[in-house]
């Protein structure tokens, strides 16, 4: 299995993601024009960004589960796709090459959840900032 670092997005792709993310635009559309490796890279980058923003926004209270619990359980996803592959293999890195369409579908759903979470963190911080400013003034 390739190392995670093999799936890094190009810097310009990362910029694209941030540009869309901060404008509240759809990230999932990016996947349609990406090759398999970049799709995994995108998933990884979104996790990193969500984690980084989550920690800034939630401080110590942030946990990965805060995001994963909003995601569809793998068993349910597999059932919907009529997939009887072992549960471990139901992740982008494994089936993106053998069943790209299904893997992309799952990753798209995950990325949607992650971008919503990131938006939420941004909004929380925005409220905090406004609150602090109004308190100071």
């Amino acid at each position: 299995m390739p190392d995670n670092s093999d799936y890094a997005l190009r810097p310009s792709e990362k910029l694209d993601v941030l540009y869309r993310l901060f404008r509240g635009e759809n990230i999932c559309d990016l996947i349609d024009n990406m090759d398999n490796t970049s799709v995994i890279g995108l998933q990884k980058f979104m996790w990193e960004t969500a984690a980084e923003f989550g920690i800034i926004s939630r401080k110590h209270n942030f946990s990965r589960k805060e995001i994963t619990r909003k995601m569809k359980p793998t068993q349910q996803f597999q059932k919907e796709q009529n997939c009887d592959e072992r549960i471990y293999f139901c992740k982008g890195t494994h089936c993106i090459h053998s069943n790209s369409e299904c893997a992309r579908k799952k990753i798209k759903e995950h990325i949607k959840v992650m971008s919503e979470s990131i938006r939420e963190y941004i909004e929380t911080e925005q409220h905090n900032e406004t609150f602090v400013q109004s308190t100071l003034s």
Binding site: N4, K44, E48, A51, E52, I55, F62, R86, Y88, C90
Partner: peptide, 22 residues
């Protein structure tokens, strides 16, 4: 048996690193 662990290992590692750095 293998666990259902979509990226959890990687993300947990990453979080640990981020928190340690912070």
């Amino acid at each position: 048996q293998e666990t259902e662990d979509n990226y959890s290992h990687y993300v947990d590692d990453y979080l640990k690193r981020l928190k340690a750095q912070a």
